[in-house]
Structures are given as C-alpha cells and as structure tokens.
Design a protein around this nucleic acid. Sequence first.
DNA 1: CTGAAAGCGCTTACAG
DNA 2: CTGAAAGCGCTTACAG
Lengths: 361, 361
Amino acid sequence: MTARNSIRLVDVARAAGVHPSTVSRVLHDSDRAAVRPETRERILAVARDLRYRPNVLARGLKTAATATFGMLVPSLRNPVYAEIVRGAVNEAARRGYVMVLAEDDSAVTEQAWDRLVEEGRIDGIIVASAAPGNPILQLVSGSRVPYVFVNRRVPGSGRNVYMREGDAGRLAAEHLIGLGHIALAQVAGPLGLDTASRRAAGFADAVVSAGLQLPALVEAPFEERGAFEAMGRLVQSRARPTGVYVSNLNQAIGALACVRRSGLRVPGDLSLITYDDDPLAEFLEVPLTAIRMPLGELGAASISALADQIDGQPARDVEVTTAPELVLRSSTSPPERLIPATPSPSSNGGEQQSGIGVDQQ
Amino acid sequence: MTARNSIRLVDVARAAGVHPSTVSRVLHDSDRAAVRPETRERILAVARDLRYRPNVLARGLKTAATATFGMLVPSLRNPVYAEIVRGAVNEAARRGYVMVLAEDDSAVTEQAWDRLVEEGRIDGIIVASAAPGNPILQLVSGSRVPYVFVNRRVPGSGRNVYMREGDAGRLAAEHLIGLGHIALAQVAGPLGLDTASRRAAGFADAVVSAGLQLPALVEAPFEERGAFEAMGRLVQSRARPTGVYVSNLNQAIGALACVRRSGLRVPGDLSLITYDDDPLAEFLEVPLTAIRMPLGELGAASISALADQIDGQPARDVEVTTAPELVLRSSTSPPERLIPATPSPSSNGGEQQSGIGVDQQ
DNA sequence: CTGAAAGCGCTTACAG
DNA sequence: CTGAAAGCGCTTACAG
C-alpha cells in the first residue's frame, strides 16, 4: 500500500536522461557532488515536476536509517506530556524526522520495545516514562539504539534532558516568602519520581535558605483525589500552613477543592501556588497562581539531543535553562494570620469577600 | 542505526540448516504452509532462541506495506484527542501496527502529508482534523492511500468514524427537561465543525420535541474565554435560561466562571450540563454534571475501519453506537424559578447554600 | 563528471 | 516439502 504506484528514482532518471545513481547523487551530496551544474539543474527540475519523493523504506534499508524516532510516554492523556510530545513532534518534523508514539504503561513496555526497536523501525528513542523498576531501563541500556531520557531523569545515565524543576520549587517558595508567609508546606508528587523529588527539594531548599523551618511535606499521586486527601492532612494539622506549594495542576484542583470544603478561604486563610499552568487555571473560582514550565522546549531539546547522538556526538545530559515563570493570579496573597490555627468546623463555601477574624500583622 | 547488527533471516536459516525462503514461509503462511512439521518446529525454536525479529523496512519494501498508520490531529494538547489517540494507538498495537502522529495545524498539512504519505511511510491515515477548507481534504481524496475521518465527519465521504454526538445533546436536554426546566439554551462550538453542529442539533431537537421553544444558542470557540463571553450574553439576555448545555469541558469551565462572576448560583439560578467528562469536573467548586463519550472506543474503531479497508473491504461509515453516558453531579437541579429574570447586580460568589428569593413552582 | 554493479533484508512465484 | 532466483527502491563504492 505504499508508494508502489508513485514515481521512483528511476522515473526521474529516465525523464532526465541520466543514470539513477546520478540522480541519487544530486539529491544527496548536496553541493560537493561532482555533478555538472546543468545536469544537476535538469535533474532537480525533473524531480520537482514529477513531485518525486524518495521511498524511505528503500533508503532506510540501504542506509540503515529510518528518519523516524520513537517516543515512550507514561500517559498520552496527561497534558504535560501532550505538550512535550508536541514540542518533540514539531522539532522532529523540522529535522525531517517523524515520530512514532507509544504509551509505556509498563505492562506493555517489552511489546512496544520489540515493535519499535527490534523491528528496526526507528533510529533512536525518547523515553519520557523512566521510573524506578520500569523494564525500559534495562531494555534501553542493553541495546545499541541511541536514546535519551526526557523530563524524568535517570541518575548516572548521562543522557537526561530536563528542566529546572528545582528552580520552580524555589520560585514558589520565594513568592510565598516574599508575601510574608512563614508557615509553609507542600503537596509533593510521588517522591520516587525524579521530577517530583526535584520540585519538592527546590521548594524545601529555598524555604530553609530563607531561615524558615523545613516545610511540611505530604506526598500524593499526580491527580486530584490524592491531592485532595493529602491537602486534608495539611489543613487539619495543628500547625496549619498559610502557604502551600502543590506539584501539578491536577493536584492543585484537588487541593483547592479540599480547602473549599474545609471552610477556609483562598488566599485569605491559605495561599496556593501550583507547578504547571494551563488556560483553565485562570477560570477556576479562585484563579490559580502558577509556575509555567518550558515544556515544548523540553520536547524539542530531547529531539536535538537524540539527533546529536546520531550525528556521532557522545551522549550527554542537557538542561533546558529557560527559567520557570511565575504566573501571578489570585490564589496567593499576604497571610491574614501568622499564628497557625485549626480550621473552623463551619462550611461556608469559598467566597472571596473581605476576610473575617483576621489577625493581620 | 537500525537492526544492522542484529539477527537477520539468514542467521535463522543458517542456524536451522535450511534455506532463508523456508524460514520466511514458516514465519508467514501460518498453518497452510507446506512445511514439514519438524522443520517448522525447528525453525520456530531457532527463531525464538535467537530472538529474531524481521526487519520491517525490508519486509515493507518487498510487500509494499509498512505496518504503520499515520494520524493527523488538530491539537495534541486537547485531552479529547489525547483520548482518541490513545484508543487508536492501543488498538493499532494490538493489530501489529505502529502509529505516527502529526499535528495538523493546517499551516503544515502539506508537509506532514509529504512526509507520511508521499515518502511511503504508512499504509493508511486517520484524519481527525477535518474542517471546512482544510487542505487535507484535497490531499486525501486525490490519493490512493486508505484513509478514514474520525470524530469530525466529512459528509459524503463514506469513510467517517464517529460517535452519537446528537444523542449527547438529546441526553442533556432530556435531563434538564426532566428536572423541570423550560427555559433552555446552549453554548455551542463553532458550528462549521461537524461535531459542534451535531451536538447542538441534538439538543435543540430534543427540546423542541418536548414541546418547548427552540432553545437559544450562542456560538463560541472550544475554549474557556470564548465560552465565558458567550455565556455572558445568555445570562444578560432578557429571557435568561435556567438550564444551559455547554459543548465541551473547557467551555464549561469558562461558562461556570461567567455565572459565578454574574452573581448567579449554580444550580439554583442556573443548571449547567457539559459535553465531555474529566476527573477534574468532580473537583470544581460546583461539580459538573457531564456527558461522557466513548472516546477511546472511537479511536479504536477508526483503526479497525482502516484495517478493514486494507483488507480489501470497501470504505464505509461506522458509527460507534455506545451511548453517551450521563454523569450526574451537582451542577444541575430543578429550577428554583420558572419565570426568567435578569440577574441581580450584586456579586456574592457562587456558594451553594439554600437559595434566596426563590420562586419555586 | 557519469555509469554499471552490488547489496540492504526481506518475500514470493517458480522449479524440482 | 524445500531450494534458488528475482526483485522491492534506494545508495555507494568502484570504474572509467
């Protein structure tokens, strides 16, 4: 079903009155091909007229290159990965590559691997699904395909492409501290995940550096419900924080729901800042202050890193240095009270009028 | 960079002491291959031991088939497409196919087309980006690659794979009407889009069938801000509706923000039901009643339809008959007032206590 | 500067 | 039941 009935190299050669090898040469060796200018022009013109497109299968068979990259993502649904994928797909296209995508839910890792790598479909692979125990780690290191880990690093691999997650946490901490908060806490992601732990570490680091106490940390999966429950623990703790950093947007939505439910006001009683931004953050009942990350750039960088390896450069870590960006909205403000207190049992919604019972200093 | 240094067919043949063609035969013609059982077993065993994997490039070159499908989506970010893609990727994997994804933002349609189709990379293509004027429509119909339109239909193409969008609208209308609403309206998507128009038509149809007046309709892009504004028009209209159907989740979040801003309560003053469900809908300040669609199934069905074409069956429309499902949450309730009124100018948030100034009948 | 040949790793009639 | 040959559409030394 492929280009069987479309123009082949020989068609171009025939039409231009030259040997196929000559056509191949002008189509490839760009300038340094020893081909007479007029011949080259003629061939190029014919190829254009005929809308000739080389068959990548045939070329790949000969050159042992497919102009295809594979990418393994933990979840196609997660908008964060969608954005990384998009950056990667577009950069790949710019370089003449095409992307094959597979969801690596670990149950089918080996199958995806066989299909992409063992069947020789790809020139390199981007792994966004690294996690402790994921079989992909073995597969990839026991193979000869070029590869790169994106977003979630694998320590010691020397082929990580990642963002400044720590700086995101630091930025969040500095924002809250700058607002006057001293009782800080965070809802972290699963700390076994490289990204989650760096976000958390950066936040804690900046808080401690500012001379404040090590912030409380509750761990939760990267989704609404888990964060709802984790936030519940924070809100009911004796030393209830006034400023909380949440590790992704889904968590933030769950956390916000929890705060609302417990009758506290955001940001009056509790300031909330989240890692990850999205247009919808602006339209929530209290628009979320967020930290925007260069996700598309990250995806593009992973392609560049892979292409470098294929060009023969040794693999190396690459940090996307674009700084995390604070998107200021309404969920953070100076604390209205510095002395931690337990929440009132009343449940009066999350309205945003002036505060009641404020102990502002 | 491909399987150049991995085991080839000849390696298996050599190890099994047979001719390569024999190996190929047992690996392919499944049962009906005229091969002595013991030979076949021996070959199979060797192939397994050597972990032999056929090189798809070589096979594809010979058979003119790549075991790869292409897919064009309007936006990789949109969770709806993410879910369709996921369904497609998984079904493709089940059938031994791999998926190449490209974002069809129309500016690069031709480029993506060249890369996927003209270069002979794929056996068929799934188009999720159909829209009036999109150049893909010409490309696809002027070509010989098997293809299918998914989600957004192209009338008359005879190769649409789609869901019962109309039934979603009907379900929404019936739910609101069942609750006692008589003043209905809808925030529709861009009506030039097949999906948007079917959602809208189904809703209007059910409303009129119930003997009620044709519901007001405002059109908005499929995102928060546009819906926020469109909803504003509805809320300020003289005949303010008490029940509104919104055409996707992003719109619903924008619409909810608008209602909140105008000082109306959901569902007391205004019931809201949305097309599209997502875990986060449950965690909004008022959990959204939603209509869940079989998106993954839709993606899988598009792969099946394409595979059928490749098997030689004529192209045909296929409807995914799984019924839209009502996910009942808190944003819909019986109307507290049947006589439309203009909103009060006060802005007292969107709390959910008992109503004030109710004209219940 | 250009042509002729070999070969990438498969599959598939065709012999025998 | 199995082998030998040709060929898919390219690229790339090697001649000349």
